[in-house]
Amino acid sequence: MAWPALKLSLSVALVATVFVVLSGTAFGWLLARGRFRGREFLDSVLMLPLVLPPTVTGYYLIVLLGRRGLLGAPLHDLTGWSIPFSWSACVIAAVVVAHPLMVRAARGAFEAIDARQLLAAASLGHGSGSIFLRIAVPLARRGLAAGAVLSFARAIGEFGATLLLAGNIAGRTQTLPLAIYEALQMGDDRAALVLSLVLTAVSLAAMAGIFRLGRKR
């Protein structure tokens, strides 16, 4: 019971973190340095999963992506692909709940950069893409790494939205938190303890690893 759940949780959390880091970094940059109409609105929308209860987020995801959902129905008609109760559903749920944490961390890290350095880079003839990749991201790397750790931790611990969108199918969509829940329900206290310790160890290891990455110059 522990091994398939661990494998699934790791793959879901890692893939979700990659998506979250890429998208969250881009949105964080946009919010930190962009000057455009609707910035506050975009900020509110992006932060929504942070304030909503995960079950509500999960419900909205079903409304949106379910087999008869707003996007899910046409997707199923066109490709025959159905999202709910799949590995992809686990990833989507994890991405959605972890995304605001990364946006917030990235925005803070980019806002902390000395504006004169970005101005200096522009005056040296560099365009916004080059400034973002060669100056802003390296300077914000610690904040971005912290955001990645938080996102990974949030993704691997995701429970509510995952349960609603992906269900709790052992060996297929049963991630570690769901396995812990089930073990407790079945009265298997020992399994619950082992699974909890495994999840704790994975989270600590991830944190240590990513922080080391961030410390390199």
Binding site: D114, R116, Q117, S123, I135, R217
Partner: peptide, 20 residues
Amino acid sequence: LPVRDRRLGMVFQEGALFPH
């Protein structure tokens, strides 16, 4: 013209060198 096309060198108070 945007900053990058003005071709002006700028030296700030404390250099603003890229620390990385």
